[in-house]
Design a protein around this nucleic acid. Structure first.
Lengths: 236, 236
DNA sequence: CGGCATCCGGGAAGATACTG
DNA sequence: CAGTATCTTCCCGGATGCCG
């Protein structure tokens, strides 16, 4: 294993998570355990051997942990250890730094976890000062619950294993007008709505999104996220 | 140039600074411009072609800028652009994350910039609540000025080009008892003092350090920096 | 089908030597 | 001092195959 052999904290961090695909894998695990095939699907560029290598190395370093779920759902999942989860501020900082670099949503990948993390990096507490909102995002099989409250933002994955009861429960709640507003769309469409100024109602008309609940809630939600200013090229 | 082809901010950041040695180079530039040979000396593990490649790529990406100094000091230096300087929070976050990983000061490199950055990541505002201190660190030709004031910490490189006047000025000030306390030692010794509990006075006796000014100031300074707790291996 | 291990080509990283 | 050129090594990436 190649090391920087440097006592600096940054290089020691890079010795562990500096290999190619290591941090993208961590990104996919930030919101909870994922199966091998989930990771492969969310990271279409990584080949299977590299994914296996990274998971093995990260597990050996104590960043990631492999866990076998109990019998009913006999799957093996990977999850962050507490120390691995502590990488989130570094991920946020890196994401915020690159916020203004060019994006090609047509050709590039964009996973649900990437979208959820991007909300964390672009949340504008000032713009959300008086907001009290709850929106759920449904991206294929990935569901996230986002809340804006007291000028703070939280988002988490909705646990869908054995979720039949929940689904029925939520469905009936919404029918009664009590459930959260839910937006069904793929991550790229959601990014276009939040960051590209795409009108959510227009996205619904184009059938690239579906909204259960109040579109006005979605519109208010969008206002709470702003991309940072690109740096002007003055002197250092 | 190899890309993750992912619209996520993290992967876009890694497309730019994810290559090997890119972030260590940025680390060395955080406190101001450095010459090619300065970088090579501070990063003993990097070979000259890689260093050249990285500087070229980082310059092309707008992270780093190459500048030729005016005639008297006819040197070419590399410096961070404003956008490159904005990487500092990410560096701090990474360094903080790796703070508890094992270190071998005997065999590993440790540059003056690494030491200065480590102070930024381990500053304990609570411990420094009532402190008002100024200490200068002299590590070979690298000099840093550190201040603790109003529970905030600042550190910067002391510009030594054409610094003869300053040197004389500061020397006479200290003779009058007005100059800041200065600690002469190499970065590893300073790390042992700050993080390893090495008594500064003992270091002076062992002739691995020299203190101009008040040793008690150094002792107070040390108290303002603490390593974070290692994470306990509980559940995620 | 999920979870890898294996094989191999291309390309980045590393060491060294050399030049303006 | 500030790099470039060359060569070697090893990691990455893609395809394929194995195995529960």
């Amino acid at each position: 294993m190649r090391s920087y052999d440097d006592a600096c904290g940054i290089t020691r961090a890079l010795d562990i998570v500096g290999e190619r695909w290591a941090l993208p894998v961590v990104r996919e695990l930030v919101f909870g355990p994922r199966r091998y095939s989930d990771l492969a699907a969310a990271l279409p560029g990584v080949s299977t051997n590299i994914l296996g290598d990274r998971l093995k190395h990260l597990a050996g370093a104590g960043v990631v942990r492999k866990r076998r779920l109990s019998p009913p759902a006999a799957a093996t999942v990977y999850e962050l250890t507490p120390w691995g989860a502590a990488l989130e501020p570094a991920l946020i900082a890196l994401g915020a730094w690159a916020a203004h670099t060019p994006v090609d949503l047509e050709q590039q990948a964009f996973s649900p976890a990437s979208f959820a993390l991007s909300l964390k990096t672009t949340f504008d507490a000032a713009a959300a000062r008086d907001a009290d909102l709850r929106v759920q995002f449904v991206m294929g099989h990935d569901e996230f619950d986002a809340r804006i409250e007291d000028a703070t933002f939280t988002i988490g994955r909705i646990h869908d294993s054995a979720g039949m009861f929940d689904a029925v429960h939520e469905e009936s709640s919404r029918a009664a007008g009590a459930g959260p507003t839910r937006v069904h769309a793929d991550p790229k469409t959601l990014a276009a709505v939040i960051y590209g100024g795409l009108d959510p109602v227009a996205a619904v008309r184009a059938e690239s999104a579906r909204i259960e609940g109040m579109p006005s809630t979605v519109a208010s939600f969008v206002q709470c996220f702003t991309l940072p200013e690109p740096p002007k090229e003055g002197s250092s």
